[in-house]
Amino acid sequence: MASTACFVIVGRNDCPIYESEVGTAPKKDEATHLHQFILHAALDIVQDVVWTTNGMFLKVVDKYNELLVSVYVTAGHTRLMLLHDSRNEDGIRNFFQEVHELYIKLLLNPLYVPGSRITSPFFDTRVRALARKYL
């Protein structure tokens, strides 16, 4: 079954610093925009939900039709947002944790300015690999 998934990392100033379509469903241009619109809109909810829990993984915070938005917030208020249509919470949790680790490794790179767009192809490859593994 083809799954749809869109993964976006949103920096603390609400700018996307990484975005990728990690789903297996065939890509449609307008759909990717819709996915990002949904994720953008979900930021409002995340902003409220994030203060209600101690965990970093906020689980599904928002949905639009059958698309669900799962969010993981790092300590630095960077939001890892995943739009998905499968209800595989454990896989998503693992995915987020691994990506978080990757992100921390990226932050340790002295040449990476926090909050700027992630352009590392290595990061991209790894994220896609993780998506294949867990989602």
Partner: peptide, 17 residues
Amino acid sequence: SSLEVGADGQWSTLQMD
């Protein structure tokens, strides 16, 4: 400055759309 920064360079995919 934050306003000015915010005025541009937000989620540009969405802005373009």
